[in-house]
């Protein structure tokens, strides 16, 4: 399965979703698709740093929340239009990414250390957002309901879904670009062996900085779009660990360091979460038990993500040698 083929398949899948949405889907399915796209975008951001750069973050909520709060505050407190809010949200999210990156990469953090420091930054932001007045404190913030293109809210949610699909497509192309670029090659090189990469003259600090900034920008975009759909955030929604976990779950289950992985992962995980709801048998919690077990089985039988599993099946069918398992 070539990279281009993977990209085309992903695009075809999104086109199919878009057509389905246009033809008419029940509201609950459309709502699920919208949330899938938001998580896919968040995970695409995570994938840039965690998948290609091997720097797994547990704190992408820091970027998601910064995007979400920025656009909300600009819209509600200053009456600025949602698109400008979105641009500012992405910019500020990227800045927070650069700041966290600067501090942690200066200190040479990687592996679990990097993961834990990102978690700590997100927690600090969560506690602050919960107590500051201009973030609405514990009551959170509401974006008022205004259906127009400039408010990035639509009476017909299919428009919003299509906009999300466009952003996810851009994410796919960006990832494909990254794979071909020199920047991407350096990033993968430092994931595989950062000392060797440095010895070969790669400025690994600069590459990591670029990667985290890009990664943060995409995830904060997802945060901005989240607000436009749900119209409400508080500190636990915006900076809570749930979204950090959702992002890394989706990317790794789908296939970290691949073009379509984050999309595959978010569609599978959220779809699975809905399907398992019918297994509860009236006992609360059983559905999530089933969900968790399937997750563990997924890791056990598809160690390179679902994307890798499918690629191996395809190869086997074509009688080609399997790819060697890659340890990210």
């Amino acid at each position: 399965m070539t990279k281009n083929f993977e990209l085309i398949l992903a695009l075809a899948f999104l086109a199919l979703l878009a057509v389905l949405a246009l033809v008419g889907l029940p509201g609950n399915i459309l709502n699920l698709f919208i949330f899938m796209m938001i998580v896919a975008l968040t995970a695409q951001g995570w994938n840039m740093l965690g998948g290609y750069g091997g720097l797994s973050s547990f704190g992408h909520a820091a970027f998601f929340g910064t995007g979400a709060y920025t656009t909300t505050i600009l819209q509600t407190t200053f009456g600025i239009n949602a698109w400008i809010g979105l641009v500012c949200g992405v910019a500020l999210g990227a800045l927070v990414g650069a700041l966290i990156g600067f501090l942690s990469f200066r200190a040479g953090l990687k592996g679990s250390y990097f993961a834990l420091i990102t978690l700590a930054f997100a927690e600090v932001l969560r506690i602050l957002a919960n107590s500051w007045d201009f973030t609405g404190g514990a009551s959170g913030m509401m974006v008022s309901l205004k259906n127009s293109f400039w408010d990035l809210q639509f009476a017909d949610r299919r428009y919003f879904f299509l906009i999300l699909v466009v952003f996810v497509v851009l994410g796919l192309f960006l990832t494909r670009w990254l794979e071909r670029s020199a920047f991407g090659a350096y990033l993968i090189a430092l994931r595989e062996n950062d000392q060797a990469a440095q010895a070969l003259g790669v400025d690994i600090f600069r590459i990591k900085m670029q990667a985290i900034t890009l990664s943060a920008a995409i995830t904060s975009l997802a945060g901005c779009l989240y607000v436009q759909n749900f119209l409400f955030i508080d500190a636990n929604v915006a900076y809570g660990s749930w979204i950090s976990i959702e992002a890394l779950f989706a990317a790794i289950v789908g296939g970290a360091g691949t073009i379509a992985g984050p999309l595959i992962g978010s569609v599978l995980l959220l779809g699975l979460g809905e399907i398992t709801k019918s297994f509860s048998g009236g006992i609360p919690g059983i559905d999530l038990v089933v969900f968790g077990i399937i997750l563990v089985l997924c890791v056990a039988f598809a160690p390179n993500g679902v994307r890798g599993y499918v690629a191996d099946l395809y190869r086997r069918r074509m009688n080609r040698p399997p790819s060697s398992p890659k340890i990210v």
Partner: peptide, 30 residues
């Protein structure tokens, strides 16, 4: 909150004529 919105969508899809509940403010909001 997100699951609250999704569950409401599900209730709508299953044909609820009226919904009651919400419990916490964030969930009631979405």
């Amino acid at each position: 909150a997100e699951a609250g919105a999704q569950a409401t969508e599900q209730l709508q899809a299953d044909g609820a004529a009226i919904v009651v509940g919400g419990f916490a403010s964030g969930i009631a909001m979405t």
